[in-house]
Design a protein around this nucleic acid. Structure first.
Lengths: 231, 231
DNA sequence: AGCCTTCTGTCATAAAGTAGTCATATTTCC
DNA sequence: GGAAATATGACTACTTTATGACAGAAGGCT
């Protein structure tokens, strides 16, 4: 399986080596020499994994990861931190930068590959093998099926994804452009009104079961999935 | 979705242009000509995004942003830096001022809008997850809901914003023009009497719960939200 | 490959819902 | 009482959303 991996590392030789190792595993590698370059790339790219050096001139990798983990969209990306010395490990652990894994340099290549693959596996598994349910609306991510009140119901992909997003993001308004970002993916340019249409279609699917009212239009703001609880 | 954006820029024409561009995207713009004015505004306002010129007479934008990023509360606000020339870009990159994005002047409007929106979208989780409450009046920024004495109550956008402003700015009188600036945004030209009407509407919403008296008319001055406590 | 069905994004139009303004009533202060 | 400031109700232009229709894309079937 090929994944897109971004490497943020200032030392060119190490970058080379890691890239070589990753490409051997059929991954696509994007390199960044420093944090601001990395940010730049993230504006238009969404890697499946980040590998970040802990210590870099300019803004440090820790800072970078910390901020990243606050970012709604990017925080989901699994991150591996590279630290130069063993002693620094503790710091990293102490300050929870939010990275998902750490390795000390010099990097042991076999271990590196194993850990990278583990991270990638973990994040992809999380997404797939699940059943998400709320208010009698149940979706199966593995089979892409929807059942409402235990009745199997047919649904298109776009509506499925939209529904999936709302089931995992309750009680909060999302603007149309946010929905486009989250559900359709960043960089996909569509009309904002398209969201309206898909909301309509989603509601139509839910209507026979009287569940359509959980999907609330917030005028001037966007849409929200509300399970009715206040607060 | 409308956000509050502060523009810190000494050159008036650029300010005008950027403001125009932002307002076109439905954002609410507050302008500051220099750093001290910006600080002043931050005393009573919390923008969702800062756009700061790198080079300004008096204290520079870099200094301003650096200090800001040390501030616990304000450091969360995403910041875009404007630099005058390409050469300065490197400096900016080198010195990690802490800004979240940079653009070089002259600013390309389309790109500017895109970047601004990207910043807002990505950081909106941090800003929105708040519930503000006072005197049994509770607003949820995430859901855009108002509940009074734990009862969900419907409210329009304009009144919501006005209420939000007062909940975060208690015990102080604001003139109609100040309210227009802070709640509607500078550059929006409206009749001052419009504020009266919205105050009326806000009071009508609160009346069934007997909360309307906390919104006090100060004759000749403006309006105030008072929680009754004496300083 | 060709045909058929389903899905998707866009658009035009209908339908709601709001916001800002104005005219008039009411209050306040001297 | 009278001027000035506010409150209030009504109106309308405007903005935002819902909805149905459509053409192209994607996929499936034979």
């Amino acid at each position: 399986m090929s994944s897109k991996i971004m490497l943020v590392e200032d030392e060119q030789p190490i970058r080379e080596m890691l890239r070589y190792s990753l490409e051997k595993q059929n991954h696509l590698v994007i390199e960044a020499e420093n944090v601001s370059q990395a940010r730049e790339i993230l504006m238009t790219n969404r890697p499946d994994l980040l590998i970040v050096d802990w210590m870099m001139p300019g803004e440090s990798g820790v800072e970078f990861v910390k901020r990243l983990k606050k970012d709604e969209i990017l925080s989901e990306i699994p991150t591996m931190m590279l630290t130069a010395r063993v002693e620094e490990m503790d710091k990293v652990n102490g300050l929870d930068s939010g990275a998902d894994d750490y390795m000390t340099k010099p990097v042991a290549i076999r271990e590196f590959q194993a850990r990278v693959n583990a991270l990638l596996r973990r994040s992809s598994r999380n997404l797939d093998n699940q059943i998400i349910e709320a208010l009698g609306i149940k979706i199966n991510l593995a089979t892409h099926q929807l059942s409402i009140d235990d009745q199997l119901t047919s649904i298109g992909t776009a509506e499925f994804n939209l529904l999936k997003f709302f089931l995992t993001h309750k009680n909060r308004v999302y603007s149309r452009s946010q929905l486009l970002d989250f559900v359709w993916g960043q960089g996909v340019y569509l009309e904002e009104r398209t969201v309206d249409v898909h909301m309509l279609r989603l509601r139509k699917i839910l209507k026979p079961f009287n569940k359509q009212d959980y999907f609330i239009t917030v005028r001037g703001m966007g849409y929200m999935f509300s399970d009715g609880k206040i607060e």
